[in-house]
Design a protein around this nucleic acid. Structure first.
Lengths: 119, 119
DNA sequence: TTCATATTTGAACAATTGATCAAATGTGTA
DNA sequence: TACACATTTGATCAATTGTTCAAATATGAA
């Protein structure tokens, strides 16, 4: 009679399960990670991040550059601000945004490499 | 009387708008990019990718490691397969998955660095 | 063949998301 | 002060997402 508790656990590879489980970051950490990476998952936000990787721009500039409404831009900038992906400074009536994290540009570059190599 | 057509365009920084617009990848390319990066935006998928960054695992192993149902895992694996982030091989009744792209591990590492530095 | 295990699939549904619109707020100029 | 421009905010709503459940498919063993 077979051991009933585990499934697909007689396989040699199954031994790695405990090992991998131990190496995996905590659930809280994984949620933090996914919240950071979620910022890149929408094409509007991605467009904003790509634009800011070239130059600091104000809300209105970003609207012009991306073709999105000012309101839509502002809503997404709020998300990016909350996640600390962009920083901003006010100059008169304008608010200028720029990337707040070296890692953002790195991820944008790797992703572009990935897509370029896949075609 | 002021020029009425553009807005916030008299600012010196506004000059960069055309420049950035020219540098920005095409809309199609940006959508490709966001579809790739979207794979990282959900904590379940991220957990799967992190687990696979340590070792090749079968669907059932992944269920055990992540605590998600086999069905949920399988649905997400389909997404990751379609996006070519994981590859798989069948061995008997099991299907073993592994990362299919060096860039995936790179992005996982940068994101982890980012979260670690922010705390 | 029949049975057990592993995996995939499709439907259904709650939860989340991103855009739009209208209204409010902030700032500089006359 | 009043006015114009820049930005933010809140409500609404259609569209998308991820999970669950049940059923189907795939493979190996008896």
């Amino acid at each position: 009679m077979k051991n009933k508790i585990p499934i697909c656990r007689e396989e040699s590879i199954g031994e790695y399960v405990e090992e991998v489980k131990a190496k995996l970051p905590s659930d809280e950490r994984i949620i933090e990670l996914s919240e950071f990476l979620e910022a890149f998952s929408d094409s509007s936000r991605l467009k904003i991040l790509l634009a800011l990787s070239f130059h600091e721009l104000c809300t209105c500039d970003l609207s012009e550059v991306t073709g999105l409404s000012v309101s839509a831009i502002s809503h997404q900038l709020r998300v990016l601000r909350d996640k600390k992906l962009v920083k901003y400074r006010r100059d008169g009536r304008n608010v200028y945004y720029s990337l707040d994290d070296e890692h953002v540009a790195e991820i944008l570059e790797i992703a572009q490499k990935h897509v370029a190599e896949r075609e």
